[in-house]
Design a protein around this nucleic acid. Structure first.
Length: 333
DNA sequence: AAAAGACTCAACCGCGGAGAC
DNA sequence: CGTCTCCGCGGTTGAGTCTTT
């Protein structure tokens, strides 16, 4: 139920007291707004509000239209693809919600903002990670994003085994997949270690597909929800004949001296030196790859070491968490 | 079944930029 | 150049809904 309040029109030259409605919109108000915009178009919101006979501010009308009434608004939960895109774009642009929303057709900045606050930041709070901190960004990049890719894999090939649930099964699993994403996974050279494979999946925003006949072969990001993934697929096709060292033509990956980190990812050891195929120790220096859009290329990006143990399909145990072992619920993303 | 807590998301607020005057 | 007005953005709120106890 909307409340009617007496409100001064702040900043207006016409500063008479005006009855303005606030709160939820009624069907009648929605109808008025829709029909007025159908006849006269959107814009000039203050005038529109008066002309349409709405006792609302222009701002309120604009918000209602853009976030709810506009015909091309998408309804329903964000798909894993959309979530992944949000994570990726947020890593580049931060809280530029409207800019991010431009790349998710049918999704509003408000919806994306709400998703970020209710899902992503909630996870960060539960993990006692400061949102926006380096650790937080690392978590997004190295756990949530791969997990979303896994979900996409599952949804696109429901009968295909999880590709990224267990890195040791990576090659076997991907060989059974048939989707474009799966093909993409197939084409990542098997010689790459699991973290390298994940890094390979991360194409920087300024990556130029100069050798490909991609329609997106320019600096302007495509504005469809297939953004990046079609490019990634094309990139994978392009690289099928590339020898492994060329795969990271834009990145140089250096593994640190941690004796726990071994080249053979099928035989990694845990923090106690025991063989445990369920534990992955990550640690690398990646040249030219940064989550910070302001940091210059060529700087070193220090990927922290994580000591992780998979605990079922949607949970990961972080043994390195300072606050004690923490379960990361990947499914709540 | 009811109360409490958690969660979602539509809507509001304040601010800053742009343009008109 | 200063002021006014509108617009759009990001941050925040709170009512309604869902889940847990």
């Amino acid at each position: 139920m909307s409340t009617i309040i007496a409100k001064r029109e702040i900043g207006s030259s016409n500063e008479e007291e005006t009855d303005l409605r606030r709160g939820p919109w009624t069907l009648e108000e929605d109808s008025l707004l829709i029909h007025y915009i159908a006849r006269h178009g959107e814009g000039r919101w203050n005038m529109l509000a008066k002309s349409a006979g709405l006792k609302r501010t222009g701002k309120s009308c604009r918000l209602r239209w853009l976030n709810y009434l506009k015909p091309d608004i998408k309804r329903g939960n964000l798909t894993p693809q959309e979530q992944l895109l949000i994570l990726e774009l947020h890593s580049k642009w931060g809280n530029r919600w409207s800019k991010i929303a431009q790349h998710l057709p049918g999704r509003t900045d408000n919806e994306i903002k709400n998703y970020w606050r209710t899902r992503v930041q909630k996870q960060a709070r539960q993990l006692n990670i400061e949102s926006g901190s380096k650790r937080f960004i690392d978590a997004v990049k190295f756990f949530w994003m791969p997990r979303l890719l896994q979900k996409m894999e599952q949804s696109s090939a429901s009968n295909s085994p999880m590709i990224m649930n267990n890195f040791n099964n990576h090659a076997e699993a991907s060989s059974m997949s048939t989707s474009p994403i799966s093909n993409f996974s197939n084409n990542i050279p098997n010689s790459l270690s699991p973290p390298q494979r994940e890094l390979f999946m991360d194409v920087p925003s300024n990556h130029h597909f100069s050798n490909m006949s991609s329609p997106n072969n320019n600096n302007v990001p495509p504005s469809s929800d297939s953004l990046q993934f079609s490019q990634l697929f094309e990139m994978s096709q392009h690289l099928t004949s590339a020898s492994p060292p060329n795969v990271f033509e834009n990145y140089n990956v250096y593994y640190n001296n941690n004796p726990m980190i071994q080249e053979n990812w099928n035989n990694v050891v845990d923090a106690n030196g025991n063989n445990n195929n369920n534990i992955n120790n990550y640690g690398a220096m990646v040249e030219g790859l940064s989550m910070d859009p302001l940091s210059p290329m060529g700087t070193y990006y220090d990927i922290p070491q994580f000591d992780l143990q998979t605990c079922g399909s949607d949970w990961i145990l972080d043994n390195n968490n300072n606050m004690g072992d923490t379960l990361w619920n990947m499914d709540s993303m």
